[in-house]
Structure formats: structure tokens, C-alpha cells
Design a protein around this nucleic acid. Structure first.
Length: 385
DNA sequence: GATCCACGGGAATACACGGATG
DNA sequence: CATCCGTGTATTCCCGTGGATC
């Protein structure tokens, strides 16, 4: 055996020991097939949907609970399964030549973070119900409405789950309901929100935050999918779970950040310092990562490049704007970048913090602080782009 | 030609402060 | 002392334009 081979063998050994990170498996916004510990909630949602299985339209409903309690996880997992079942039964219909009465229900999941206009709501609903692509331009909202109407006619009933309603920057439940008014007889809505729905007559399902044990379970399950075995201990999961106090989003974001810190140092296990780094990268009053990742492309670019600026933390909005405008990756005017930054601050994705004045005169500038899990965003952004 | 939406640009407004004014 | 004014900077608001797509 020659020396090179011996060295390569050592290198490979090192590689094998190295922490493997499947970032998607650790992502707080990943869709999972079986959300752990949410069986009772699944049952209640299924109870609510019961009429569907007899071909009737269920009443409108509302699922609500605190951030990071698995609302999106439950609904996406459930609707995914239901949709697959529908598609299977529909394809049976398609293969028969005889025209049949529609007997299968439709299940649609919408995110109001991505769909904020009537056009987008109809578009996304229609897109979920058709294989063909639905035009995003050149067609009026009214045309989409009539296309959607006739499409809905092919199902016995339809349930549209509308996620993230009533957040500061999204449509309220009432607004969503109003936009879908024309389809009142054809579909029912299941809104998903952080606070209980006000007023309209619906069946309400409350989802509590995760208990400590279940959250530890969630972390262990995800780490077993995303990391090499033994990289993350039960004791560490306990630490993260208690730090996150029931919020799975924050706990997973911290785990993700910790894994990334360990990977950067070529470690095969998470240390306490990694854990701390992971938690430090999840700011207090943290905005959901899902919100950041559904922003238009150029805004995400601005955020990403902002995080790449070495000394962004100490600089004013104006200075940051100029620095970003100089970045080759960004092809936007300084004015637009500045407007983006102010808009992102308005949305709470970053925060403007007043600083002491730098000039003798004029209004004092403010600096920018991210309000989302930065490390997670950076990795996921890099994977996406 | 229609349609939606992101950009760009700029006008309008807010804020902080020192100095002038009543 | 309270208020107003001018100046300079920060922030918000608004709308026309053009790209992309049908």
C-alpha cells in the first residue's frame, strides 16, 4: 500500500465521522408526512371535515394556535394525503369514457403570505386543482374566477385551507372570506391563524403549543433524519426545547443553526457552544422563516446580501443602502434598495433601531437588525439559488 | 392588446435641533 | 418660557412605466 492510499484512507475516515447535515430535514419550514404528537388535532380536523366523506360540504372552520405549534405542519400533511386520495379516485374517473357525476372532494392548501390579492387567491386555488399551468399574466381576475367556478363544478365539494390569515401583512379571515364569497356554495374555507377568529360563524379548533416532551420528540425525530446518529443528544434536545418554550419553529431554527456551526468547524457532534450559537442566531421576537422565504426574489437577495456585509450591524440605513448598491450580485437602484429596507422594517422582518446622531443636524439615522433566523435563512437561500 | 406586478423615482411628510421670535 | 422657523436628514407614500406573459 502506498503512502497516498494510506493518507486517502485516513481522509475518508475523517469524512465518515464528519457531521452530515441534511438541511431540508432540519428546516423549520419543511413539510413532514407525520407531524409527531399532533394526533388529537388531526382527529379534530378530520371530525370537522367529516361531511366531505359523505359528499357534503363541511361548514367553514378555523384552526388557531400560537406560533410554532404545528398548524401548518398538520394541515399540509393532512391535505397532502387527502389530495393524493382524491387524485387517485379522479384518475379512475378519467379512464372511463362515460361522463360521470363528480363524486370526489377537492382539497386545496393556500398560503396568504404568497397570495395577497384576489387574483392570486384564485390563481393559486386553480393551480392546485389543475395539472396544466395557470397563466399569471394576461388574464383578468374575472376570467380566472369563471375558470375556477367551472373547475370546482367537477368536485363533490371543495375545502380550501387558507394559512397565515390575520397576520400583520396578510389578509384577514374576513377578507379571505369576502374574496371567496362568489364560490360560497361550492367550497368551504378552513382558515389557519394565530389568534381565534373573530365573529364569523365557524367551527373552531384550537391547537395548543407543544409540550416539553413532545417538542423534544420533534427535535429528536428531525435530528435523526438530518444529522449523523449521536451528533445530537437527548440532553441537548431538552435544552433547546426548554429554551424555545413550546415553539417548534424556534427550536428547529436553533437546531439548524447549531448543526451549521458544528459543520463549519468540521465537528461530528454538536457542542454546547454550537448549541449556543444556534440559539443566538434566532432573534427574540423572531419572525417566521416561512414569511421570509416567500418574499419576492429580489427582497430575499437584498436580505441575503445584507447578511454578507461584514459590518452591517453598526451602519445606518443610508450606508447599508450604498454598500448594497455596490454589490455586483444586486442589480437594483439605490432608491429601490432603500425602499426595500424600509418596507422590510415595516413588515417586521428587520427592525430599525435608532442610533445616536452622526451629523450635527438632521434626523438621527437608524441601523438595521434582522428579526429572522439568519443562519437558517442563509443556508436555505444558498440551497435554493 | 390585456393583464398583473415589481421597479424606479420622486414628492410629501416626519423628525431633530438650534436659533429667532413673541 | 413657549412657540415658530429654517435647515438638513430620515422615512413614508404614491404612481407611472415597463417587463413578462397570455
Amino acid at each position: 500500500m502506498d503512502i497516498d492510499t494510506r493518507i486517502r484512507r485516513r481522509e475518508r475516515l475523517q469524512d465518515d465521522r464528519r457531521l452530515v447535515v441534511d438541511y431540508q430535514a432540519l428546516s423549520p419550514v419543511a413539510h413532514v408526512e407525520e407531524p409527531p404528537g399532533r394526533g388529537p388535532v388531526l382527529e379534530r380536523v378530520l371530525d370537522h371535515l367529516d361531511p366531505v366523506f359523505e359528499g357534503r360540504k363541511p361548514p367553514d372552520g378555523a384552526l388557531w394556535g400560537p406560533p410554532g405549534s404545528g398548524k401548518s405542519a398538520v394541515v399540509t400533511a393532512l391535505f397532502d394525503r387527502l389530495r393524493i386520495r382524491t387524485e387517485q379516485s379522479q384518475s379512475v374517473v378519467h379512464t372511463t369514457t362515460r361522463a360521470q357525476s363528480p363524486d370526489a372532494p377537492a382539497f386545496v392548501y393556500l398560503d396568504t403570505r404568497a397570495a395577497s390579492s384576489r387574483f392570486q387567491l384564485y390563481h393559486d386555488t386553480l393551480a392546485a386543482l389543475t395539472d396544466e399551468s395557470v397563466p399569471e399574466h394576461g388574464v383578468s381576475t374575472e376570467q380566472l374566477q369563471s375558470r375556477l367556478r367551472s373547475r370546482l363544478g367537477r368536485y363533490s365539494s371543495a375545502v380550501v385551507a387558507v394559512d397565515h390569515v390575520g397576520e400583520p401583512q396578510t389578509l384577514s379571515a374576513a377578507e379571505v372570506r369576502e374574496q371567496f364569497e362568489p364560490f360560497g356554495s361550492q367550497l368551504s374555507l378552513l382558515t389557519i391563524s394565530r389568534s381565534p377568529p373573530d365573529a364569523w360563524p365557524v367551527e373552531t379548533i384550537e391547537i395548543p403549543g407543544y409540550g416539553q416532551q413532545v417538542l423534544i420528540d420533534v427535535l429528536m425525530t428531525r435530528s435523526s433524519e438530518g444529522l449523523t446518529s449521536d451528533a445530537f443528544t437527548h440532553r441537548q434536545a431538552r435544552t433547546l426545547a426548554s429554551w424555545a418554550s413550546g415553539n417548534a419553529h424556534d427550536a428547529l431554527a436553533a437546531l439548524f443553526g447549531a448543526a451549521d456551526a458544528a459543520a463549519a468547524e468540521n465537528r461530528d457532534q454538536l457542542t454546547e457552544a454550537d448549541l449556543q450559537a444556534g440559539m443566538d442566531h434566532v432573534p427574540e421576537r423572531c419572525v417566521s422563516l416561512g414569511w421570509v422565504l416567500t418574499l419576492p426574489e429580489n427582497r430575499q437577495l437584498v436580505l441575503y446580501e445584507l447578511l454578507q456585509l461584514p459590518d452591517a450591524a453598526g451602519r445606518s440605513v443610508t450606508e447599508i443602502t450604498d454598500a448594497l448598491a455596490d454589490r455586483p450580485a444586486i442589480d437594483l437602484s439605490a432608491g429601490t434598495i432603500r425602499r426595500f429596507l424600509y418596507e422590510l422594517a415595516e413588515d417586521g422582518i428587520v427592525e430599525r433601531v435608532e442610533t445616536e446622531r452622526k451629523h450635527d443636524q438632521g434626523r438621527p439615522p437608524s441601523r438595521i437588525e434582522p428579526r429572522f433566523p439568519t443562519r437558517v435563512f442563509e443556508r436555505l437561500y444558498e440551497i435554493q439559488n
